[in-house]
């Protein structure tokens, strides 16, 4: 978002530039555009090598029957027609959507709550900022293994705690129940990423001008009214940014389920990426896996586009 601002400023400044014409200006402008290209080229190169070329290759692979070993065979759009009728992929997509719908509000509300808590300029706010942010620095896989141990029946400390509170009995197994397994994963992911959301929202909160808040206070607005009518509307761009990040991350979830639930119980927690992994690396059907990846990318792009659109509208209000 902030990266757009300088560009906008430049464009706004252009009409006011003196309307001189002639070869000198043209030479200057062509030099300028060359310079721009030169400065953008490292990024362009990186994007080409690590994004554009792989995407094109993925699409090329998706048009083939492409085994791990042996020769690929061109089959046109067969992989796509098959994907549309693939029940396993559909249920994986459905589960991914459910997971996203459940976890997004949890992260957003909790992240905002934490940001409001640590915003106040009291001593210790910095300390708690660091504490809440700390799990973000831990790898997702390490975090998953940690929680796998914590929640394990009989041996896990978290399990023991829940047992003492009386929420579970000693013979039960949290990873063996569909909702409890999902609950544990959501708890882990929340612990792991809520700190980042808190930090992003905190920067949004701090960009709200003090004068506005003060003016509303003078006008007699209460705490709740200030939050509802001042903080939230002014925070919308940041909220939208956090939302796009969060939703994209959830739609691409894989590691946490692969490690913590192994897709179980009874294959009920297989996400879209997990299913792509299975097709490609357990079934060795790289072409079909590529087709599913392309479909997921389209879905992701559509969801992000819808969110961006909403963001733009609110921005102009």
């Amino acid at each position: 978002m902030t990266s757009l601002a300088p560009g906008r400023a430049l464009r706004a400044a252009e009409p006011s530039a003196p309307p001189t014409r002639g070869p000198r200006r043209r030479r200057a402008s062509s030099r300028r555009s060359l310079l721009g290209l030169a400065m953008a080229s490292p990024a362009l190169l990186l994007i080409s090598v690590f994004f554009l070329i792989p995407v094109v290759l993925t699409f090329w692979m998706s048009l083939h029957n492409w085994p791990l070993l042996g020769n690929p065979r061109f089959i046109g759009l067969d992989n796509y027609t098959r994907a549309l009728g693939d029940d396993n992929f559909r249920s994986a997509l459905k589960f991914t959507l459910i997971y996203t719908v459940v976890i997004t509000p949890v992260l957003l509300v909790l992240g905002l709550f934490l940001a409001l808590l640590v915003r106040r300029p009291v001593r210790g706010a910095r300390f708690f900022q660091s504490v809440y942010f700390m799990p973000v620095c831990i790898g997702l896989a390490s975090g998953s293994f940690l929680w796998l141990y914590l929640g394990q029946s009989q041996i896990g400390p978290l399990f023991d705690l829940l047992r003492r509170v009386g929420l579970v009995n000693s013979s039960s197994n949290l990873f063996a129940g569909g909702s409890t397994a999902l609950g544990l994963v959501i708890a882990m992911v929340t612990w792991k990423v809520v700190g980042l959301q808190m930090l992003l929202l905190l920067s949004g909160l701090q960009s709200i001008p003090d004068e506005v808040v003060e003016a509303s206070r003078i006008d007699g607005a209460g705490l709740w009214q200030r939050f509802l009518h001042i903080t939230l509307p002014l925070l919308r761009p940041t909220l939208a940014l956090v939302l796009v990040f969060s939703v994209a991350g959830s739609l691409l979830a894989f590691d946490q389920f692969f490690i913590m639930t192994g897709g179980g119980p009874s294959n009920s927690t297989i996400t879209a990426v997990y299913q792509i992994y299975r097709i490609s690396f357990n079934g060795f059907r790289l072409g079909y896996g590529a087709a599913l990846s392309v479909l997921l990318m389209i879905i992701l792009a559509a969801v992000s586009a819808v969110q961006m659109l909403l963001l733009r509208n609110t921005d102009h209000n």
């Binding site: 192994g262 357990n282 079934g283 060795f284």
Partner: peptide, 24 residues
């Protein structure tokens, strides 16, 4: 030639059948 996806895949048909039958 498809031993891996049928039997060794931890989300494959084989283990799902055993798990569903035993516990379900």
């Amino acid at each position: 030639v498809v031993e891996n996806p049928i039997f060794n895949d931890n989300n494959g048909p084989w283990i799902k059948m055993i798990n569903d039958a035993t516990f379900g």
